[in-house]
């Protein structure tokens, strides 16, 4: 499977601050790739590097097989880009905005554009400056899907949107961009969890991991060990066990390399007095929080 987005040691520094450091990733074709990470992790900078909005300090990226620094109108005609902080031509009405963009895209589909306007209930005669934030995001998405792009890049699209708009936005994206590769950065992990096929976790400009969602979900487990009496905490705590929490006769932690047999055997070795051992599946949000906390603790140490 080819990758519409590939980066090699992509780095970006702003004076003395390194926003992205040696980032290497590949977004598989047809995947919905979620780029997650805490605020200031470098998600937006990464996306701007991919879209040639910013120039990389070092490293490179290929978008649809072309060096991102040399993206031409031909490539941009195959890419849909929606960003939470994009400045729109405020004076245009929704209808005129779509009519204006149409000649730029050889694959523009009038029927699809009309469908999107209808589905999003966009007021065609209203100027973009008079639209609510949710409506503007919908207009932006409609204008980015109407030409059936091969790659859709969404930078924090859910920020500031209410639940209903998020739901509409996501549903339309999935309905209308079937088979399209989607790269999405977002804080809304609960939303993303429902449809992302791949996830990359970025922190302090470094990509901590990138993998399929299902693999990630299988890899993380919250482990709860119960005892008859408060147990002694072992000195040689495994590096993969995160967020240890001891309360009375219960020890909880998160195993970031979960394997039922191996984890079970390790628990029994370290806690020979354990009465029960339970494994709980984790949501993306719980995994994200655990990773972020572990990162902070490591930094503090």
């Amino acid at each position: 499977m080819s990758s519409p987005i590939v980066t090699h040691n992509l780095s970006k520094s702003f004076r003395h601050t390194e926003a992205v450091h040696a980032l290497s990733l590949a977004v598989p074709e047809g995947s919905i790739y979620a780029l997650i990470g805490p605020n200031g992790a470098g998600k937006t900078t990464t996306i701007k590097l991919l879209m040639n909005i910013l120039r990389a300090s070092s490293g490179s990226a290929e978008i649809l097989g072309r060096d991102s620094r040399r993206l031409s109108p031909r490539e941009f005609a195959r890419i849909g880009y929606v960003s939470e902080n994009q400045e729109m031509p405020e004076w245009m009405t929704v209808d005129y905005f779509l009519r204006y963009l149409k000649p730029f895209y050889p694959t523009w589909d009038d029927a699809l554009a009309a469908d999107l306007v209808r589905q999003f209930e966009l007021p065609g005669d209203r100027k973009l400056r008079h639209l609510s934030r949710g409506m503007r995001m919908k207009a932006s998405l409609a204008s980015s899907l109407a030409y059936r792009p091969e790659l859709v890049v969404l930078d924090e699209p859910f920020t500031g949107l209410d639940a209903l708009v998020r739901d509409e936005f996501t549903r339309t994206l999935l309905d209308r961009a079937e088979g399209t590769t989607i790269l999405i950065s977002s804080h809304d992990l609960a939303e993303i969890e429902n449809f992302a096929s791949h996830v990359g976790y970025i922190e302090e400009g470094r990509l901590r991991f990138t993998e399929e969602m299902s693999v990630l979900a299988d890899r993380f487990r919250q482990v709860e060990v119960t005892f008859d009496a408060p147990p002694p905490v072992p000195a040689n705590w495994p590096a993969d066990w995160m967020k240890p929490d001891t309360a009375a006769a219960v020890v909880r932690f998160i195993d970031s390399r979960f394997d039922r047999e191996r984890t079970g055997a390790e628990v029994r070795r370290l806690f020979p007095t354990a009465r029960t051992v339970d494994f709980h599946a984790m949501s993306l949000r719980e995994i994200f929080v655990a990773l972020a906390m572990a990162g902070r603790h490591a930094k503090a140490a």
Binding site: P73, Y81, Q86, E87, P89, L101, F104
Partner: peptide, 18 residues
């Protein structure tokens, strides 16, 4: 300014403008 060259948030910079 219709297609402002300054700034990195303008709608047109990720559109197929020549």
């Amino acid at each position: 300014h219709g297609e402002s060259l300054a700034g990195d948030r303008r709608f047109w910079i990720t559109r197929p403008y020549s």
